[in-house]
Simulated scan of single mutants.
Amino acid sequence: MMEGIFKKLMEETEEERSILRGNQSINKAIYTNLTSDFVIQSEKFLKDDLIMIRKHPRYIDFPKHSHDYIEMNYVYHGEFFQKVADQPIRLKKGEILLLNQHIEHELKACKKEDIIINFIIHPAFFDYIVTNLSTGFIQNQMLQFLVNSMFDFNQKGEFLYYPVSDSNRIQDIMNQLLLEMMNQSLLAKSKIKFLMGLLIIELIEQKKNQTATPIKNEQHSFLNDVFLYIEENYRDANLQSLATKFNQNVYWVSRLIKQLTNQNFKDLVQEKRLLVTKNLLLYTDLSMQAIAEEVGYENVSYFYRIFKQKYGMTPRAYKLELMKTE
């Protein structure tokens, strides 16, 4: 099976055949509609998808550029030379490089035996990971924190290098991704999303092992305690009670939660209450008044308003939709 993939990847694409015929300039129209800065646009590849996988074109240098998406380079065979933010980088077989959408890089021409796979990933995909690959409030919030730690979505150009050629787990996931890339089945796109989610989790674990510090360990411990407190006290959770638990003032606790999660304490409590609400709507026949009180809302109108803001419909309409899908 994998031999078949290698044989397929070794074949020249139309773009590569054009280069071999003597066209030694990048056809920018393939990558961008912009006429000034060379910014590769996700709309050229993603359409309505969150992820697209393609082989990097060989035989030609690629000029300095950036992109409006997260890019991942994976060396399937051979090696890959590039300059990222003016820093020379050589990727060897099995290694991975992640680049955010604000960094520039330029690429040296690949030889015939250099097979590089590019993953074009919309930033919204990381919301998809948190929503679909975590279960329960604590897992959801901790995964969100880890993803935010890994990908700093500000205006700063950043990249992450992963020398993971000896990681059997990561290489196995990569091989599965390539199999699905070649697969045209209706489920292939869904499989790619979940495999990529698993890959990101593995890379998060790799990065944590490489860069773990006492400060980061303390941050993780702090957040675990915060999330556990909310899990157990969401009906009447309040910052003063939480601050007392840490022997700190309210301002310190509030500021650190915001710094680490990019959410306010109130937002986290509300997220937990709404998750419980969904379970009560699905598995009980409680009235809306009773559900609102059960999750900690005395004002039913306010309860309706925040639920609709989150899910786009009232709790009653949401329950009806759930009943239709059973």
Score class of each variant (00 low, 15 high):
8 K>D: 08
15 E>T: 11
16 E>S: 07
17 R>I: 04
18 S>T: 02
21 R>N: 10
23 N>M: 09
26 I>F: 08
27 N>K: 11
28 K>W: 12
30 I>Y: 13
30 I>V: 10
35 T>S: 02
41 Q>A: 00
45 F>L: 04
47 K>N: 13
52 M>H: 15
52 M>V: 13
54 R>L: 10
55 K>P: 08
57 P>K: 03
61 D>Y: 10
61 D>A: 09
63 P>Y: 02
66 S>F: 02
70 I>G: 02
71 E>W: 02
71 E>Y: 02
74 Y>R: 03
74 Y>V: 04
74 Y>P: 02
77 H>I: 00
77 H>V: 00
81 F>V: 03
84 V>C: 05
84 V>Q: 03
84 V>G: 01
85 A>E: 14
85 A>W: 05
86 D>M: 11
92 K>W: 05
97 L>G: 10
97 L>R: 10
101 Q>E: 10
101 Q>A: 04
102 H>Q: 02
102 H>C: 00
102 H>R: 01
103 I>D: 09
105 H>D: 06
108 K>M: 11
108 K>A: 14
112 K>M: 02
112 K>V: 02
122 H>V: 08
123 P>G: 05
126 F>A: 03
129 I>N: 10
132 N>R: 12
134 S>R: 07
135 T>C: 05
135 T>N: 11
138 I>R: 14
138 I>V: 15
140 N>I: 00
140 N>D: 12
144 Q>A: 13
147 V>H: 13
150 M>I: 05
153 F>W: 11
154 N>H: 13
155 Q>S: 04
157 G>F: 09
158 E>Q: 08
159 F>N: 09
160 L>R: 14
161 Y>H: 12
163 P>T: 08
163 P>L: 04
172 D>I: 04
174 M>A: 01
174 M>I: 07
175 N>Q: 14
176 Q>K: 13
177 L>P: 07
180 E>A: 06
182 M>D: 09
183 N>R: 13
184 Q>I: 06
186 L>H: 09
187 L>S: 12
187 L>Y: 14
189 K>L: 12
189 K>C: 06
192 I>K: 13
199 L>C: 02
199 L>H: 04
204 I>W: 06
205 E>R: 14
207 K>N: 14
210 Q>Y: 07
215 I>W: 10
216 K>S: 12
217 N>G: 11
218 E>L: 11
219 Q>F: 11
220 H>P: 00
222 F>M: 06
234 Y>A: 05
235 R>A: 01
236 D>I: 01
237 A>S: 10
250 V>P: 01
253 V>C: 01
255 R>Q: 05
259 Q>W: 00
266 K>V: 04
267 D>V: 07
268 L>Q: 06
268 L>N: 06
269 V>R: 01
270 Q>E: 13
274 L>E: 02
275 L>D: 12
276 V>F: 02
280 L>A: 04
280 L>I: 03
285 D>W: 03
287 S>Q: 07
290 A>D: 13
296 G>I: 11
297 Y>A: 04
302 Y>V: 11
305 R>T: 12
306 I>W: 07
308 K>R: 15
320 L>G: 07
320 L>H: 14
321 E>T: 13
